[in-house]
Design a protein around this nucleic acid. Sequence first.
DNA 1: AATATTGTTCAGCA
DNA 2: GTGCTGAACAATAT
Length: 262
Amino acid sequence: MPELPEVELYSRYFATHALRQPVVRARVLDERILGEIRKSTFAERLRGRAFSSVQRHGKHLFADAGDDTWLHLHFGMTGDLTYYADAAEDPRFARVVFDFEGGAHLAFEDMRLFGVVDLTSSPAAFIAAHRLGPDPLDSRFRLRDFQQLVANRRGAVKALLMSQEILAGIGNLYADETLYEAGIHPRRAVSDLSADEVKKIYATMRKILAETIRRKERGGDYPARSLIMHRDEDDRCPRCGGAIRKMVVFGRTTYYCSKHQK
DNA sequence: AATATTGTTCAGCA
DNA sequence: GTGCTGAACAATAT
């Protein structure tokens, strides 16, 4: 399930493979993946253009096609990108395929169709229109900015981390992972957090996101002591031996350690 | 065959 | 009106 770290890797993948090659044809294999844009308009507006750069904000990926036209990708739950040489190798769940002038192809795949492929005038316009919060890995996003977000909120801390209008990029898995490592219960009220706890959440969240990107880029897995590797009610906490519990918070299945997350 | 997942929309509450 | 939570919805492989 692509969250911020995975989308960052897609962004790098896009940048290393699919820039500066004119699009001969943009094939829409399943129109249900498209957002606002209509199929014919989508193909026409991209024909002959080359992507010059990519930008990521939260779980959203943008590729600049010039002339106030940006490709916008959202990976939903099962979105993926594949670059390949032969059109005969179109992936099974390819929904949109870009055929490049050199003969190569880039496919946006999405088995469950929760993702979106669209065009937008600019990343900034999209972010404003959808009221997305700051990206937690943005270097301009400092502790004081996070403290500000916390000060203006009530409710469960997990809801704060997962709300894209507050903070863009964290989904179910990394919200759980952050709180697990910070030792904070997912239902803890934001208004109840101490200054130290707020600081801890900020630092832990950034560390986990950045480390995951680093590890995955080298083809590595999650650490053995991470909650991600132990999302199972019958499991035990790899740090303190406490029982792993499951519950629903903010409408999502939540795992936490009953011993060190009070 | 129930379950899991995301973002959006809406109902209801304080 | 605002902020928040929870439910329903979309799709489909396992």
